[in-house]
Design a protein around this nucleic acid. Structure first.
Lengths: 189, 189
DNA sequence: TGATCTTTTTGCCTTTGGTCAAAAAAAGGC
DNA sequence: GCCTTTTTTTGACCAAAGGCAAAAAGATCA
């Protein structure tokens, strides 16, 4: 139980067995079905999720009602509606299970509590923030510098799993192009 | 000397006079001229800057050679080529003084040293990362959900200083539109 | 002040990618 | 397996914004 989570934590920070036990005790396990929504816009109840098996998607709705996917989180990754988690404002984003998914989660309250009592936990959060920032900035740069074709090629090169595993609709919304355009790109390149 | 920096730090974290002195001792002051480049792509020498007076711009070049502005930092803000700072890879970005600018800077080495010896410094870095993440994500969302006109209006509403103080060329490259399009937008709206 | 250089504006045309609609294919339920 | 629903593909047309070029306006400096 929770080996994956333990391994993940021990990869990032140096922590004693007792402290690790303490950390793990705050995480709860849940199983969710495909398409289930874990966080909806307007909600404040904040949690950080760790994906054991399956996949989470973070997305929001544009003014026109189209979905825009901000992030996919697969096995052994943390994920949450991070802006809302940081600012403590209600979420603008959905967190959704794309497949049947097994998760561990920790509440925001317990997470902050851990920051107080386990000094190394601050370091793990730092790594998470740094990773999230770098990922986001690279995405920002790809939207600015690349056209639809190049963005698709880059995704295929850097993260083929997303293209393989996720339905077209979601891949298109991740690349910020229409499904039709993605379909045309796939048939060509 | 360094009052602005002291005030900034004391706004973010609780820190004793001795620790504050220790922190400040790692910062050096420099004066740079308008258009001067502080960090260029390919460089590894990393510093974090604090803007006393003036303004810094973080930008990179697209494949076509166009400038794309990622961030403006005005008085009382920290700024650096953060991705490079985090990953320790060579920078893809320029850091440039847009105006005559007075700066304090700290080397990456000293910055990491402070993380070790001043526990609260970790908290300040956390705030910086969180702020950078939220800013970046909002920008990402604006590129995805808004067209050129709406992005310009939003910038005007949320950050009129940028539009007023920066040359058109840079504002356009910040909004990711051509100078011509910005010019047409300004004359209309 | 005039001469030069840079930045901004305007007009015209092109391109990328979006929208709408319908057909084809795939997935899911019983 | 068959029927229904969802997803993907294809075609025709359209609009937002870019590129290019030239004119106008504004800076810079001897």
């Amino acid at each position: 139980m929770r080996e994956k989570l333990s391994i993940y934590i021990r990869e990032k920070i140096i922590i004693s067995d007792e402290e690790l036990e303490q950390v793990l005790s705050f995480f709860k396990r849940i199983q969710v079905k495909k398409n289930e929504i874990l966080i909806s816009p307007g909600e404040t109840s904040q949690r950080i999720y760790f994906v054991g098996t399956g996949c989470l998607r973070i997305f929001f709705l544009t003014a026109g009602g189209t979905e825009a996917t901000r992030h996919f989180a697969f096995e052994n990754q943390f994920a949450t509606a991070l802006v809302s988690f940081i600012t403590n404002e209600t979420s603008k984003e959905f967190v959704q299970a794309v497949e049947d998914t097994m998760l561990y989660y920790i509440s925001q309250k317990d997470f902050y509590h851990l920051l107080q009592i386990v000094p190394q936990w601050e370091k793990l959060y730092r790594h998470y923030l740094e990773y999230a920032y770098v990922t986001n900035t690279n995405r920002l740069m790809s939207f600015i510098t690349l056209d639809a074709t190049a963005r698709y090629r880059q995704l295929l090169a850097q993260n083929p799993g997303i293209v393989m595993r996720m339905p077209n609709k979601m891949v298109a919304s991740y690349l910020n192009i229409s499904q039709e355009t993605l379909s045309r790109l796939k048939s060509k390149a």
